[in-house]
Structures are given as structure tokens and as C-alpha cells.
Design a protein around this nucleic acid. Structure first.
Length: 482
RNA sequence: UCCUCCUUAGCUCAGUUGGUUAGAGCAUCUGACUGUUAAUCAGAGGGUCGUCUGUUCAAGUCAGACAGGGGGAGCCA
């Protein structure tokens, strides 16, 4: 058996001195021709391997370069140096894989995130990205644990869909028809009856509609998978391929929905604070360092850990859309005409408005409910007793500091007639959606759900400002490396 | 898609009103030193100044187009 090694994280957490160990990992630095900082990805803490002078061939020492992989056998000893309590005194060092020092792009120094983004295949070997992706893993695990504890069924909704009725964004077409000389029908349009599925198909933009079908049987389900949007969005918070978590619950109204979303977010943060304290501490220090470089007016004034504690220990602010508009209209910011976009009832809130509410006014996450029906999707439940011309739906968005919208959800319209009427007025093809409407025909119930952008959640927890730095291999317009 | 800024050594960046042979730190290589912590010290190598076109006696520097990247906006999660 090849792998009898101990992982560095385990070794550093209390292996008694005198123990014989085998460790494997990659060289971060080799100092003084004697001290190897070895990392195996289990923690950012490096293991110091000591190659005592004169005990190793010069030809081996020459090959211990940054990025090279080693198998080290040795003894755990108390460290004579100051940077660590224990180290491994090597009895043998085997080079598993060389790393040409002249060509290896990562140096033992600070690199810019932009540079590392172009070296995405190697950036996991840096402390920042190692921490981010260990946290990403922990968050994914916590998502499943949260829902599993509550009896939700994990439903895998399809990635290829034929439904184009959601209006959630531009879609990527899926086809096996030839690009040139595609078969045409009598009207001269492309004949999708000859395509693989016999119809036009796309990559999913949301699993929600299928999720509702599941909720109408299991009571509570959630989806967690990749989602695709072909929007030409070039921002720090959009990806063409991203992961989304979409719970859908029967017998829930909008308030139950808010309660679940709020405790979900708090649960995820608490899980990471408990299980990834080292990584969070590293990112907290990193962010504090970054802040120092910024001019005073651009600093957030709140450390990463402080921010996370604030979110975990306080209820989210809950306001209606109408109240949000009033707050904006009464703000000095508005009176001094500092908003670029005008504020009046009926508008969709712009980022600058959301940022004002979250970052200036409330200074914590805010849940906004009761948006105008005209600016929201067809499946959202019409609120009863609205003033004419000011119809609202039972929608809710959770706005987070620094990220903006992190959750979008609603109570769904369960009344068949109301839903059909709304679909017709919004030009949603009612006949093609018959399978969806069956849930309202046969045993319809009040139900609700929301979508949480996984990468945005990771951004919030790690403090990374660009979404491309929290997904392993980002897909964005004009960019599909690896 | 729009606005805006950027592109000079492997990396991070200087480079004056256009003017001799384009610099620094780190990295790399060579040597010294040897309980170092992004080791230190000495020396060396390393450049089509993003690409193309133009203005000029002369362009890293000025103008235009294109490409790539950052930030912001829209769309949204």
C-alpha cells in the first residue's frame, strides 16, 4: 500500500513527539537548504520538514523546489524554531514529482487575485483559495445537513429542460442538429422535431417549477445543482454557470418562507464558524490587510468575523416594498439627489437603492416583501386586498451587505384561476405548462420557496469580492478555460 | 450590452514637457552563510513596452482601431 501517510492537519493537532510518520504534500518554500514548508491542502498551516545539513544528497536537495511534491518519512520532534511547536525531522525524502523552478508560476509571495484567476488550475495551492474552497465544501455539506435535519427530500431536477416559460434569463440551447444545413420545416424554421429530444431544449435556468411538483408530494424538497444563464453579464456577482439551492415547501406561507430562509443563512454561517475557524481567521486577516490599502472612505469598517457574528446574532430586518420606497424617499441621500435612478412606487429597486437600505440605513441583512406584481414572475401569489393599481405579490428578496440580492423567493400562486389569468396576461404558454398546472388542479395547497445563489453565499461568508474567485472554474462571457 | 480605468522583465510596479543604452523589489541562476519562517548577503541573466495603423526628425510616452483584464451599471441568484 502506497498511502500510509498522516495528513498535516491531523499531525499538527497533537501527534506526540517521537512518533514516526510519513507525510506527503507540495513544497511551499524551501528555506536555508534545510527547512521545507510542506502543505497537503488539509490546512493552511504548513508542516516544517527539517532536512538536517549533510544528511541528504545535494542532488535531492536541488529538486526540493516550490511546487514539487514530496514523500517524507521522519520523526515528530519539538521545534527549535519559533514559527511552529512541532516539526518533522526527515530520515528520508522522496521526490514524487519535480517542479521546474523557472517555469512554476506561483512564488512564495503575494499574488494578485487577477493573476491567480488566469492560473485557476494552480490557485488552489495558495492559502486564500485553499481557504475559500474548503469553506465552499463546508457550506455545501451544511446545506444538505440543514435540510436533512428538517426532513426535506433532496430532489435532483433536470439540467436539460424543454420549458422556456420561466423568464429567468437567456438560455443556452441544447441540440445535436448540425450547425450548418440544419433541417428546416415548411415555414423555413429549424425543424426541432428532428432534434435529439424531438423538440427545442435548453440548459435549465431554475429547478423551481419541477421543485414545486416534488413539494406537492413530499411536502418539503430542496434542489442543489448547477444552473445556467446565457446573459451577457460582466459583473463581480454573475456567472453563466452557477449553483443554486432551491427549497420548496407545501403548507408554507410567505412568513414561514422568510423564517426558513433566515434560519438557513444563519445555520450555514454558524456551521462554517464552528468547522472552519482557521480558514475564516485567515480570510479575516487577509481582508483586514486589504482594507488597510484602501482609502478611509472606502473601508467597510467591519471585519469579516464581526460581520458574520452580526448576521448570526441579529434578526434580519423585515420591511415591505412600500416601506422601503418610503425610507428611500425620506432619506437625505434622496433629498440631496444622490441616487442616479429615480425613486417612486412601482420601480424595481436598483442596486444603489438596495445598497442604501442595507449598508447605510439598516446596516444588516434586510428582507423586502410585497413587490409590485408588474415587476415579478407569474407564479408569485397575488396579495389580497390591494389598492387598485398597486397590486403586490407575496415575494421576498433578502439583501445582504456587499452582495445585494442573495435570496429571491415567494409564496406561490396556488389558485388555479388566478394563476391562469396571470399567465395569460404575461404571455406564458398555458397549454405547454399543463403539467405544472396539474399541481393546482389536484390537491393544491399554499406553498412557498426561494432560491439562494450558492456562490453569492460563499462570497458573503469568505468576503471575496469577485464571484469568479469562489467557483473553481468560472464560466463567464467570452471565458471558458479548463 | 453601456460607462470608466488599466496593459512595460516570470510577478508587483516606476518611467518627467515625446529625445542617448527602458529601471526597482521579489522570483530565477551562480556563489557565500547555515535554526530558517515570503531567510539573509554578493553577483549574473532576463524586455517585440498587448496588437495593428497613424502623427513626428524622433513614440514606452501623442491619436485611432482591435484584443485582453479590472471596477461600475443594466439583467439577476
Amino acid at each position: 500500500m502506497f498511502n500510509q501517510r498522516i495528513k498535516i492537519k491531523q499531525l499538527l493537532s497533537g501527534t506526540p513527539t517521537g512518533t514516526e510518520v510519513v507525510v506527503m504534500g507540495w513544497v511551499r518554500t524551501f528555506r536555508n537548504n534545510q527547512f521545507v514548508a510542506l502543505n497537503d491542502g488539509s490546512t493552511n498551516a504548513n508542516l516544517q520538514v527539517v532536512a538536517s545539513l549533510g544528511e541528504f544528497e545535494e542532488t535531492i536537495l536541488k529538486r526540493i523546489t516550490t511546487g514539487a511534491s514530496l514523500k517524507v518519512t521522519g520523526t515528530v520532534v519539538e521545534s527549535l524554531g519559533k514559527g511552529q511547536t512541532v516539526e518533522v525531522k526527515a530520515t528520508s525524502i522522496e521526490i514524487l514529482g519535480d517542479s521546474d523552478a523557472e517555469k512554476y508560476p506561483l512564488q512564495p509571495k503575494k499574488h494578485s487575485l487577477e493573476f491567480l484567476r488566469e492560473k485557476a488550475h494552480l490557485r488552489f495551492r495558495t492559502n486564500t483559495f485553499a481557504s475559500v474552497f474548503r469553506i465552499r465544501h463546508a457550506l455545501a455539506f451544511a446545506v444538505h445537513q440543514f435540510f436533512n435535519e428538517r426532513g426535506f427530500v433532496y430532489l435532483n431536477t433536470p439540467i436539460i429542460t424543454s420549458s422556456d416559460a420561466e423568464g429567468a434569463g437567456e438560455m443556452f440551447r441544447v441540440t445535436t442538429l448540425p450547425m450548418e444545413g440544419a433541417p428546416k420545416n415548411e415555414q423555413g424554421e429549424i425543424d426541432y422535431t428532428q432534434d435529439f429530444f424531438g423538440k427545442s431544449t435548453n440548459l435549465t435556468v431554475s429547478g423551481q417549477l419541477e421543485g414545486e411538483l416534488g413539494a406537492m408530494a413530499f411536502s418539503e424538497i430542496y434542489t442543489f445543482g448547477p444552473t445556467f444563464r446565457a446573459e451577457n453579464s460582466n459583473t463581480t456577482r454573475h456567472l453563466a454557470e452557477f449553483w443554486m439551492i432551491e427549497p420548496e415547501m407545501a403548507f408554507h406561507d410567505i412568513e414561514d418562507n422568510m423564517n426558513l430562509a433566515e434560519s438557513f443563512i444563519q445555520y450555514l454561517i454558524q456551521y462554517v464558524m464552528k468547522n472552519n475557524a482557521d480558514d475564516l481567521a485567515f480570510l479575516d486577516a487577509r481582508l483586514a490587510e486589504e482594507e488597510k490599502q484602501l482609502p478611509t472612505e472606502k473601508r467597510s469598517g467591519l471585519g469579516l468575523l464581526e460581520k458574520l457574528n452580526l448576521v448570526v446574532n441579529n434578526n434580519f430586518e423585515r420591511i415591505t416594498y412600500t416601506e422601503a420606497i418610503d425610507i428611500l424617499l425620506n432619506s437625505n441621500h434622496y433629498k440631496k439627489k444622490k441616487f442616479k435612478y429615480d425613486v417612486k412606487w412601482g420601480i424595481d429597486l436598483q442596486s444603489e437603492h438596495e445598497r442604501y437600505l442595507v449598508e447605510q440605513h439598516f446596516k444588516k441583512p434586510v428582507i423586502v416583501t410585497g413587490y409590485p406584481a408588474a415587476i415579478k414572475a407569474f407564479y408569485m401569489r397575488m396579495n389580497d386586498g390591494c389598492e387598485a393599481g398597486k397590486e403586490t405579490v407575496a415575494a421576498m428578496d433578502i439583501l445582504a451587505p456587499g452582495i445585494g440580492e442573495i435570496v429571491g423567493g415567494s409564496q406561490r400562486e396556488e389558485r388555479l384561476e388566478v394563476l391562469e389569468a396571470r399567465m395569460r396576461s404575461m404571455h406564458v404558454p398555458v397549454e405547454e405548462m399543463s403539467w405544472y398546472l396539474d399541481t393546482r388542479r389536484f390537491g393544491t395547497v399554499p406553498h412557498a420557496g426561494f432560491g439562494l445563489g450558492f456562490e453569492r453565499m460563499i462570497q458573503f461568508v469568505t468576503g471575496m469580492t469577485n464571484i469568479r474567485d469562489v467557483i473553481a472554474f468560472a464560466r463567464t462571457p467570452k471565458n471558458c478555460e479548463y
